[in-house]
Amino acid sequence: MIYLPGLILALAAFWFALSGETAPLFLMLGALSVLLTLWLVARLKIVDRDASPYHRAPQMVIYGVWLIGEIVKANVAVVRRILGPTHAIDPVMVNVTSSARTSLGRAIFANSITLTPGTVTVDVDGDKLKVHALVRETSSAASFAPMDRKVAATADGGKS
């Protein structure tokens, strides 16, 4: 329940950003839609510490910027494979272990791997991830270590 005010504030701000209306009727409809969303969220029982990581927001922004840099590099690499000859691609399945303790950290790690072109998380079982990678030589299990360290530091607050 401690995370409810933050959620209400975020929903209200989101509604206002999408509509931009200030007439009383629209404000009332907006309040109604916020209430409806709150009811749905309460039914789902997902308002907890993992779903409201405000205490980690600055670290998440820093991690997001770093991830965008990685995505740019990976984009260039995959575009070169697309334009190159077919036999230049050399896919491989890699087993990666996540050192993040919380499910939030594991979710961020798996989604970061999928978001980076050239690597897709195929299966998650506890802290074991199965990753399909497009390029064998740049995708050893050790090449995921920097991202893993940063995710663990971002989500769980360890040292980076």
């Binding site: 995505i71 984009n75 995959v78 575009v79 691609i89 896919p91 978001l115 072109p117 050239g118 897709v120």
Partner: peptide, 14 residues
């Protein structure tokens, strides 16, 4: 199929 996912993610991200 698995390699095609990588190509599709170029569109989705970049």
């Amino acid at each position: 199929f698995y390699t095609r996912i990588h190509a599709a993610s170029i569109t989705d991200t970049g």
